[in-house]
């Protein structure tokens, strides 16, 4: 298997799907001539031409809506947001048009498209450029929300998202683009809605997604030194949520800590906890705890920024508490 970066795995997925299906095109700010703000679309302009790799003006609402209109009429757009912070400008078209079109039209008009780009905090980008919005989108019926944590999943999930007949919010990890890993060549499809056990364990379930998978794995490694065998689950798809996988794991471990980079209130973890308290009620030996981003706008200062993010130490602390070892 090839060793690729997360960025190149995404690039490979885009190229393969554009090759496979001429109705797929890529549109967004700086995707063509500049080769992508994060170089995810590197080489695609040369390979597929300017009709299929389209630089847009800085008009998120406009090109998101344009993408939806195109999806209504026989194409499969991949709309890149330079970051999901800017997608706030487009949220009317994502929510009011893309998510609802199939339902409002009584089933006549599916929206086969992908909105993709990086989300979450990077490094010292400050309050307006460091936000995790997956819970916003996951709240909307009609949308799917996908967040890969590894190069292999990045490729397999993006390919599946492009082939999906629904609007998919595909949020990449800005800090993951340089992550290297084995990526299957060619037809590697990871189904949407299926979580992945990134590390099997018996004592506690750590639920994570995107960047926090690596944080949870690090915590698990340190915990094993203390004799606690943590299972790390990567949600991979936030909506639909793979509650069966979570339930099976918690039935085994009897305790659970949910990690996410986003804010606590109404976050993804809140949904995970809500589901688990129903599906695994009789198997819980402790209340489920959550480790989330601090409930503040992201500060610029490096130390403050670090303190706001989920860390292995905070995960370990939560694990000790659900294990009654604090």
């Amino acid at each position: 298997m090839a060793i690729l970066t997360y960025r190149d795995a995404l690039n490979e997925a885009l190229a393969e799907e554009m090759e496979r299906d001429p109705s797929v095109f890529l549109m967004g700010e700086e995707v063509a001539v500049y080769q992508g703000a994060y170089k995810v679309s590197k080489g695609l302009l040369d390979r597929f031409g300017e009709d299929r790799v389209v630089d847009t003006p800085i008009t998120e609402l406009g090109f998101a809506g344009l993408g939806v209109g195109a999806a209504m009429t026989g194409t499969r757009p991949v709309i890149e947001f330079m970051t999901f912070n800017f997608a706030l400008l487009a949220i009317d078209q994502i929510v009011n048009s893309a998510a609802k079109m199939l339902y409002m039209s009584g089933g006549q008009i599916p929206i086969p498209m992908v909105f993709r780009g990086p989300g979450g905090a990077a490094l010292q980008l400050g309050a307006q450029h460091s936000q995790a919005f997956e819970s916003w989108y996951a709240n909307i019926p009609g949308l799917k929300v996908v967040m890969p944590a590894t190069p292999a999943d990045a490729k397999g999930l993006l390919k599946s998202s492009i082939r999906d007949n629904n609007p998919v919010i595909f949020i990449e990890g800005e800090m993951l683009y340089n992550m290297k890993g084995e990526v299957p060549e060619g037809e590697h499809l990871v189904p949407l809605g299926v979580a992945d056990i990134k590390r099997p364990g018996n004592d506690v379930t750590l639920v994570s997604h995107s960047k926090t998978v690596a944080v949870a794995l690090k915590a698990a490694e340190q915990l094993s030194a203390d004799g606690i065998d943590a299972e790390v689950i990567d949600l991979r798809t936030i909506r639909p949520l793979d509650i069966d996988a979570l339930t099976a794991s918690v039935k085994k471990t009897n305790r659970c800590v949910v990690v996410e980079e986003g804010w606590n209130f109404c976050g993804v973890g809140a949904q995970v906890v809500d589901d688990l308290q129903r599906t695994a009620f009789d198997y819980l030996d402790a209340p489920i705890l959550r480790v989330t981003g601090a409930d503040v706008p992201m500060p610029y200062n490096k130390q403050l920024e670090k303190a706001s993010k989920p860390s292995p130490d905070r995960i370990i602390d939560a694990v000790k508490r659900v294990s009654y070892q604090d």
């Binding site: 009709d51 195109a70 209504m72 194409t75 078209q93 009011n96 008009i109």
Partner: peptide
């Protein structure tokens, strides 16, 4: 809506349908 008649909707958010129609035009050109 009636896709068989090219009736692609009434849309409830003022101006929301303008980018949509532009997208349909993009699709026709594409």
């Amino acid at each position: 809506f009636d896709t068989t008649k090219g009736m692609l909707g009434g849309h409830g958010i003022v101006a929301g349908q303008i980018p949509l129609a532009t997208g349909a035009a993009f699709s026709f050109k594409y």
